[in-house]
Simulated scan of single mutants.
Amino acid sequence: MADLIKAKILFVEDELSLAEIVKETLELKGFEVIHATNCVSAQILQKKNPANIFVLDVMLPDGDGFSLLKKLRQHYQTPAIFLTSKSLPSDVVSGFESGANDYLKKPFSIEELIVRIKFLIGQIQTTNNEITKYSRVIGDYLFHYPVGILEYKGNNRKLTNRESELLHKLTTHSGNLLKREDLLMEYWGNDDYFSGRSLDVFVTKLRKYLKDDPSIAILNFRGQGYKMIL
């Protein structure tokens, strides 16, 4: 398995003073950082020298990070983190719906950013050839854990680390109510509003991935938590 600190980051930020500090710090920690200041240059740089994680500002001079990620997602399934001062609930939802894996509000701690990057990079260090701890039947699906492969009629979907861990938790406790605050503290480290919205988005994604088998349901008990029915 490759060393996590060798990750290559596409960092898109137009605030040059902030970009310089973040880039320099990440490079001192061993990361390779490709810096872009706008959407157009980001797409060009990614095509020439593909990164294995995106760190994107939302407000950019020629567009926004949400739209940029949607364009990048047409060709790359690279994990992505948004860095932004936008903190309205609609902004958080838009970020995750555009394909983001994580969302960090400005001002932020670079140490926290590094932890989140390492967490996301960890999900792409595995391959389909890696030995799994187990494979679990979920209705018409086969779930390979911990590599996070969801198999349906011969077609494989690679889940993100957080999607895989959340699905593992739900399936191993199927029929039982998993408390919302417990899930948030275990996978997000806090139970604030923004983490709660993130949890809701991830559950929505899992429902979408499992939609081809109507016998599977992830029930939402408002204000309490979630229960998977198989």
Results as ranks from 00 to 15, higher is better:
194 F>R: 15
194 F>M: 14
209 Y>E: 01
157 R>S: 08
31 F>A: 10
17 S>E: 08
108 F>N: 07
87 S>A: 07
97 E>Q: 10
160 T>M: 13
62 D>G: 05
178 L>F: 00
75 H>Q: 15
6 K>P: 02
49 N>M: 10
184 L>D: 04
13 E>N: 03
61 P>Y: 00
151 E>Q: 13
72 L>T: 11
55 V>K: 05
31 F>V: 00
26 L>Y: 08
38 N>W: 00
75 H>N: 12
57 D>W: 03
85 S>Q: 11
42 A>R: 05
23 K>I: 02
228 M>T: 07
123 Q>P: 01
173 H>M: 14
201 V>N: 11
148 G>M: 02
128 N>W: 15
199 L>Y: 03
227 K>S: 07
145 Y>E: 15
137 V>W: 15
216 I>V: 13
3 D>F: 10
226 Y>Q: 05
14 D>L: 00
25 T>E: 14
6 K>E: 14
6 K>L: 14
65 G>S: 02
183 L>H: 10
45 L>K: 13
158 K>Y: 09
116 R>T: 06
135 S>A: 14
13 E>G: 05
48 K>V: 10
113 L>E: 11
74 Q>P: 02
213 D>S: 06
68 L>W: 02
97 E>A: 07
117 I>D: 04
170 L>Y: 09
188 W>T: 08
18 L>Y: 01
89 P>L: 10
183 L>Q: 11
31 F>I: 00
156 N>P: 03
111 E>K: 15
39 C>S: 03
106 K>Q: 00
87 S>F: 09
203 V>K: 08
191 D>W: 04
78 T>V: 02
40 V>A: 00
151 E>I: 09
188 W>A: 12
29 K>R: 15
182 D>R: 11
124 I>N: 13
160 T>N: 13
14 D>E: 06
126 T>C: 10
166 L>Q: 08
82 F>R: 04
14 D>I: 01
168 H>K: 14
21 I>C: 02
20 E>S: 09
104 L>I: 06
212 D>W: 04
188 W>L: 07
212 D>K: 01
189 G>T: 07
105 K>I: 14
138 I>R: 05
190 N>G: 15
47 K>P: 10
142 L>K: 15
179 K>R: 13
104 L>T: 04
42 A>F: 09
81 I>M: 00
119 F>G: 12
196 G>Y: 12
51 A>Y: 05
172 T>I: 11
45 L>H: 09
78 T>K: 06
126 T>D: 12
131 I>V: 15
199 L>K: 03
8 K>T: 09
29 K>P: 10
100 A>N: 06
33 V>S: 01
185 M>G: 07
154 G>P: 05
228 M>F: 10
14 D>G: 08
189 G>F: 01
51 A>V: 00
113 L>V: 06
19 A>V: 04
169 K>Y: 09
31 F>Q: 08
150 L>D: 00
13 E>P: 06
101 N>D: 03
70 K>I: 06
196 G>E: 12
99 G>Y: 08
132 T>F: 14
80 A>W: 01
43 Q>P: 03
29 K>W: 09
143 F>I: 03
58 V>W: 02
227 K>T: 11
33 V>L: 02
76 Y>F: 15
202 F>D: 08
160 T>W: 09
212 D>C: 01
148 G>W: 07
158 K>P: 05
131 I>T: 14
